[in-house]
Write a protein that binds this DNA or RNA. Structure first.
Lengths: 192, 192
DNA sequence: TTGATTGTCTAGCGGTGCTAGGATCGGGTC
DNA sequence: GACCCGATCCTAGCACCGCTAGACAATCAA
């Protein structure tokens, strides 16, 4: 059985290589540059190999999205754990979220802007996505305010952050005052 | 000179036809279905004719975006004018914005999600875009609160609406509680 | 050693945005 | 009315896309 195990290990390693390469390429040159041909060339295999791991390009985007969601959850929890008191926690959360989006634009797009074929807000939502939302909920639930459902509040807060992240990066909002916008958002939305 | 004028008129009419057809096709089948070939076929001209009006597909998206911005400004002003008092006005504004995004998803995408080659938040920003933002500012400025710059407040409110619009349509937020999210957003962000 | 299975590649399909270059049409001039 | 010339439009094609059928080579079991 050892031979088979080795093959499975190698196959898993190659799959990770595909995802990592796609992510790197997308981060450096944008998702438009991530073509199956270029990706195949980078991993030094032919195109059809990609399709033995993923149904298509969409699933590769989805894989990058899951990786990103896991990382984002870690980053959010690390930032909120280091902050003491509700207000610093929420501020740290918002800043970390926007920072993640800015530093990993391609991954952020895979998660929330592109179609990675993933289910959201449903039963079959992949665990990393649920967990990333849970990470938001953990810190935001405590500032939802009386009579406001924590989940609903988290959705609204998240949507606001998402709007800031996408509009800023698309050049729709001048980046200069980003910090003041975050402060305003936290001040108004969170019940402290 | 009359001949030349007629030609210019016909040319302008054809340009409007291109934009209208692109919009209709995008609204019915999504922007992915708006290919230069299909578009050319619909307007009953060959592909290169498109390129005598626009530099490329991106500019056609931009033209649809401008058309949409003008319509959105009209819709926002109509809704806010019909409402009396700051609170009903802001609520009407938010609802109208989200309603526009939901009813005209392709146009909304052209405006804020896709690259239409348009400048934003800059000096050379096209007038319809500036005016749409102005329409938001007119109603939101009065609820920004003391010491908060109206423009900055409008940006934050707009970003929140944008986040709700995009995440809802992408299936990231369950549509069921959309109305409660709007109420929460207005309650918290606006100073009434 | 043979035969089957697994893995990978070459080649190609139908599609994309975009453009070069030739045909055709129509207005202005003699 | 005949001609020229410029504007206008189309045919054909480029390089690229996502994806796949089928040939080939390597590997394992008998």
């Amino acid at each position: 059985m050892s031979v088979q195990e080795r093959k499975e290990r190698e196959r898993a390693a190659r799959e990770r290589l595909i995802v990592a390469t796609a992510r790197e390429l997308a981060e450096k040159q944008g998702w438009d540059a991530v073509t199956t041909r270029r990706l195949a060339e980078r991993i030094e295999y032919s195109q059809p190999v990609l399709y033995s791991h993923f149904r298509g390009k969409r699933e590769i985007i989805g894989a990058v999205a899951l990786e990103g969601a896991a990382e984002m959850a870690v980053a959010l929890r690390a930032a909120t754990a280091a902050a003491h008191g509700p207000r610093p926690r929420v501020t740290a959360l918002a800043r970390t979220y926007l920072d993640f989006a800015e530093r990993n634009p391609a991954v952020y797009d895979a998660m929330f802007r592109l179609d990675g074929g993933l289910a959201f807000a449903a039963e079959d939502t992949p665990e990393p996505l649920k967990d990333a939302f849970a990470a938001l909920l953990e810190s935001l639930g405590e500032v939802a305010g009386d009579g406001v459902h924590p989940g609903l509040f988290t959705e609204v807060f998240w949507a606001s952050l998402h709007g800031l992240a996408t509009l800023t990066r698309a050049g729709r909002l001048p980046p200069a005052e980003a910090e003041r916008r975050v402060e305003l958002l936290v001040d108004r939305l969170a019940v402290l």
